[in-house]
């Protein structure tokens, strides 16, 4: 597959595809973070996670429009406002969904799969009714456009760099919350042993609601990032949900580091292989690698070892 390229060209291709992979990696990480903390803590597989992401993307689209219409002079900074709006909107809907739907299904974990899948269909149709079936794109402010010329043959996009910085920051904040805050302490206790956490005085239901809201909110931010690499349509979330599940399972649902490492592996192999093979062959190869590794390590990449 390397026929017809010079060695230098192959180097450049790898570098640029790796960089493109890093943007995909950012979206995966943001999606998987939310999915992993929700699945790790509550055992709920949120099939509507992709739609929460798309909700964030639509919020970004709306915010950019509002800025263009009412405050064009502040357009350069709209993206930061949009991220906040996306987080709050997805988080608030997440809280409401937990309260109306998920809360009632904790004793039937498999049914949450069906219920959230139904929710995803409802959300898709709601997007279609409200925003229309056509794809929408977001206008980027000038400073995010263009790319940096690293060498003659390698260039990196500025918005890609921005998305990655954003992802690193959000991951750091989530890690801090999980390992340094009272909420994180309670989440980890519930993940370890729900019944005992309750008997130690932790209001597990309240923690569940907060976690679900936060997970969905992060998906909203992922949606903001997503607007830079893809166009937003009612069903665009579907394309990402399967890959994100793969990331979560491969990484080990309870490990933040595992989630990041697995998002990296999957996005990089996907992106690099896509250039040389077709899109579907790239997917097949990635899946084969993941399946092979999961056979060797069924518990995921990173799992802490302690005495039982």
């Amino acid at each position: 597959m390397f026929m017809g390229y010079s060695l230098g060209e192959i180097g450049s291709i790898f570098a640029m595809q790796a960089f493109a992979g890093l943007i995909l990696f950012s979206v995966f990480v943001l999606m998987a973070l939310g999915l992993a903390i929700i699945f790790g803590q509550m055992g709920v597989i949120n099939m509507a996670h992709g739609e929460f992401m798309i909700l964030g993307a639509y919020m970004t689209f709306l915010t950019s429009h509002l800025f263009q219409t009412y405050a064009p002079q502040a357009f350069a900074g709209y993206f930061f406002v949009a991220m906040l709006v996306a987080f709050v909107a997805s988080g608030a809907i997440g809280l409401a969904v937990e309260w109306l739907l998920i809360k009632r299904l904790y004793k039937r974990p498999l049914d949450t799969l069906l219920a959230t899948w139904g929710l995803s269909l409802i959300m898709q149709q709601a997007f279609r009714s409200i925003f229309g079936a056509r794809e929408v794109g977001v206008q980027l402010p000038d400073w995010m456009m263009g790319s940096l010329q690293v060498t003659d043959t390698i260039e990196v996009q500025i918005n890609g760099l921005f998305v990655m910085t954003l992802t690193l920051m959000i991951t750091a904040v989530v890690a801090l919350l999980l390992f340094r805050s009272r909420w994180g302490l309670q989440v980890r206790a519930v993940v370890a042993n729900r019944v005992m956490a309750d008997a130690a005085g932790i209001d597990t239901r309240r923690i569940d609601r907060l976690t679900f809201g936060l997970g969905c909110g992060i998906a909203g931010i992922a949606g903001s990032a997503f607007t830079m690499i893809g166009s937003t349509s009612p069903t665009a979330g579907q394309a990402y949900i399967v890959d994100t599940f793969l990331v979560v399972v491969f990484g080990g649902a309870q490990s933040l580091l595992g989630t990041i490492a697995s998002a990296f592996t999957i996005s990089q192999s996907q992106s690099t292989l896509e250039f040389f093979l077709t899109g579907s062959m790239a997917k097949v190869t990635t899946l084969l690698i993941v399946i092979g590794l999961l056979m060797l390590r069924p518990q995921g990449l990173f799992v802490l070892k302690v005495r039982k």
Binding site: Q186, R188, L304
Partner: peptide
């Protein structure tokens, strides 16, 4: 039934939450 992956201090702190 202590929380095995959490530190000793964190285990005690779970009781402190309430």
């Amino acid at each position: 039934q202590i929380f095995g992956t959490m530190t000793v201090r964190e285990n005690i702190e779970t009781g402190l939450v309430v």
